[in-house]
Every structure is written in C-alpha cells, then in structure tokens.
C-alpha cells in the first residue's frame, strides 16, 4: 500500500453513539451536499451502540477535510454522536508496514 501523504484525498469518517433513526441519512446527505463521494460503508449495532465507518473521497468536493470534519463533528455533537473525519494515512501509517 502506497503511503500517499497528500496525493490521495480519501478520508475515514467514523460515527459512534447511541443508535437513533436517520444517522446514515443525515451524514450521507451532508456528504452529498458537498460532493463528497462515499466509497464504502460498514455499520454495526452492538447493545444499541451504533458504530459506522465510512471511506469517502474528497476529490470531487470543494470542501476541505478540516472544514468537513469540523462541520460533522459539531452537528454530530448536537445528536449526541461522536463524529471524526481523518485522512486515511493516519490509519495506513499506524497499521500497515
């Protein structure tokens, strides 16, 4: 796996929190509004605890990663959800040699 450091514009969106109606609708809607393309979603619920991991591509989008992260984090807070958006390289570097 290439250690892209900037060439790739893919990010990992993670959402953690108590399950409620419309989490995916909300986040995918906000991403679509900003032309952020969803590449993959994986989601589970364990004991009413919702966890979602999403791979998104920011290339088609005009919004910067930091701005997207701030927006989703703030809106997520209002819904009692912990939302993080991080460039994929942090996971690549930590878990792949």
């Amino acid at each position: 796996m290439a250690l892209s450091l900037g060439e790739s514009n893919r990010a990992i969106v993670t959402i953690l929190g108590r399950d409620q109606t419309g989490i995916i609708a909300w986040v995918s809607g906000r991403l679509a509004e900003h032309s952020v393309n969803i590449l993959d979603i994986s989601q589970t619920i364990v004991d009413e605890f919702f966890t979602m991991i999403m791979v998104v591509d920011l290339n088609p989008s005009k919004i910067g990663l930091a701005d997207l992260a701030r927006m989703l984090e703030e809106e997520g807070n209002d819904k009692n959800l912990q939302v993080k958006v991080q460039h994929e390289d942090i996971f690549t570097f930590m878990h792949r040699i």
Binding site: S42, T51, V55, F91, H95
Partner: peptide
C-alpha cells in the same frame, strides 16, 4: 475498506 474495524477503533 482497507482497514479492519478494530484497527480504526
């Protein structure tokens, strides 16, 4: 997804 859920978490 190129990472295991556990790795991301």
């Amino acid at each position: 997804i190129t990472f295991a859920r556990e790795e991301i978490q």
